[in-house]
């Protein structure tokens, strides 16, 4: 995990802890925490190191699962376990 001084806020957190609507950049992903097939799919959808993302929606009935994240102009539903494996730096 490295801090980027250029644009970010300097903060580092897991994606699942990011507040709704706040933009962030994925700095690292713990791919070992994600099943190989799911890792492939997440990468194919563009959820990978360097991607800019934000949480659009979270949970139903007060739960924290699933999560809808924005990547580019796409909205992607993932589970909290996936988001917890991604380290982000909020903008």
């Amino acid at each position: 995990m490295q801090l980027r001084l250029r644009s970010g806020s300097g903060l580092i957190m897991k994606l699942d802890a990011l507040e709704r609507g706040r933009r962030a950049t994925i700095t690292s992903v713990d791919w070992d925490a994600i099943a190989p097939d799911e890792g492939k799919r997440l990468r194919a959808l563009g959820l990978d190191e360097g991607a800019r993302t934000a949480i659009a929606h979270r949970g139903v009935f007060g739960g924290r699962d699933p999560i809808a994240v924005m990547v580019g102009r796409m909205t992607i539903a993932i589970r909290r376990v996936h988001a917890a494996a991604m380290v982000v730096e909020p903008a």
């Binding site: 799911e38 809808a68 992607i76 993932i78 589970r79 996936h82």
Partner: peptide, 10 residues
């Protein structure tokens, strides 16, 4: 098996 995940484009 392991709990299945949910990854889907909206």
């Amino acid at each position: 098996g392991r709990a299945s995940g949910f990854i889907m484009e909206l």
